[in-house]
Amino acid sequence: MSAVIKTTTPFALDIVLFQALINLGHEPKNVTVKNIRDFQGINGVECGDIATNRVDYNGHQHFRKQGELWVLRHDSDQYNARVLGSKHYKKVAEFLSELEQEYVYEYEHYLAELAELEKKEIEEQRKARVEATRQQAIAKAQAQGYSVKEKHINGKVQLICVRHI
């Protein structure tokens, strides 16, 4: 038997979900061809699922991608439910509520990392444009017979072109 429990935050990004599960101590593992036998049971775990250390009557509770979202698959009766390596089992609704809060936190962290990467990329592009412009100005000046000296003033490059007659 299974149940559907809705959360207000959809679990859309696997890396964020994975990190949130790690932070909560649920030891997520990607199910692969090599380790699928570790999760066998009547729960129908498939390659590509994210298994947790939460176990119920059907076996390991796991997340499966359905469309764009990751959905928890579990036994709704929670018969024989436990967390491997721990005596503390939270009901699925409580678990998902806690996971949702951690997911939102990790998602914000993920967005901050993306923004930082984008900021670095923009800065790298700016530096490349400045260097290309500098090289172009030097080449043009030398083609016209100037000798070029460079000065760095307050983080800016100043080119001094001198022609001897």
Rank of each mutant, 00 (worst) to 15 (best):
155 G>C: 09
70 W>K: 00
84 L>F: 10
44 G>E: 09
160 I>R: 03
155 G>V: 03
71 V>S: 02
156 K>Y: 12
35 N>F: 13
115 A>Y: 03
100 E>A: 05
37 R>N: 15
38 D>Q: 15
37 R>A: 14
118 E>D: 13
14 D>W: 04
145 G>D: 07
33 V>P: 00
36 I>L: 08
48 G>I: 01
92 V>Q: 12
114 L>D: 02
66 Q>M: 08
6 K>H: 11
64 R>T: 15
119 K>Q: 14
130 V>L: 15
86 S>Y: 11
88 H>R: 11
41 G>V: 02
18 F>K: 13
83 V>Y: 06
122 I>P: 01
117 L>V: 03
70 W>G: 00
52 T>L: 01
61 Q>D: 05
161 C>A: 12
122 I>D: 06
66 Q>G: 07
134 R>H: 13
93 A>R: 04
101 Q>T: 00
148 V>N: 12
85 G>I: 08
98 E>C: 06
34 K>S: 09
146 Y>E: 08
96 L>S: 13
66 Q>K: 09
152 H>W: 14
9 T>V: 06
82 R>P: 01
48 G>W: 01
120 K>E: 15
163 R>H: 08
75 D>I: 00
141 A>T: 11
12 A>L: 14
115 A>C: 01
114 L>F: 05
80 N>T: 02
154 N>G: 04
74 H>C: 12
82 R>M: 08
11 F>W: 03
79 Y>T: 05
58 N>E: 07
165 I>H: 13
17 L>C: 05
121 E>V: 02
98 E>T: 08
7 T>F: 15
87 K>Y: 11
160 I>G: 06
122 I>R: 13
150 E>L: 14
107 Y>M: 07
53 N>S: 10
102 E>A: 09
85 G>L: 10
48 G>A: 03
80 N>F: 02
78 Q>P: 04
142 Q>N: 14
65 K>C: 06
17 L>S: 05
18 F>P: 09
163 R>T: 00
83 V>E: 02
47 C>V: 15
92 V>F: 10
37 R>E: 14
85 G>H: 06
76 S>P: 03
140 K>Y: 04
123 E>G: 00
109 H>N: 12
79 Y>A: 03
103 Y>T: 01
66 Q>W: 03
56 D>G: 13
89 Y>G: 04
36 I>W: 03
29 K>F: 11
27 E>F: 12
158 Q>I: 11
132 A>R: 04
58 N>S: 06
165 I>E: 07
153 I>H: 04
96 L>N: 14
140 K>S: 10
36 I>A: 05
12 A>R: 13
94 E>T: 09
129 R>W: 08
10 P>Y: 01
26 H>Y: 14
24 L>G: 01
87 K>S: 13
131 E>G: 00
121 E>A: 05
163 R>M: 10
53 N>I: 12
39 F>S: 07
29 K>I: 07
45 V>L: 06
157 V>N: 05
110 Y>G: 03
144 Q>R: 08
81 A>Y: 06
7 T>V: 11
62 H>R: 11
39 F>I: 09
135 Q>G: 09
135 Q>Y: 08
93 A>V: 06
47 C>T: 10
108 E>L: 13
75 D>K: 02
68 E>T: 08
98 E>Y: 05
41 G>C: 05
15 I>G: 02
70 W>T: 00
5 I>W: 13
41 G>M: 06
77 D>F: 12
95 F>E: 15
43 N>L: 10
36 I>F: 03
103 Y>D: 04
68 E>P: 02
79 Y>S: 04
95 F>W: 14
145 G>H: 07
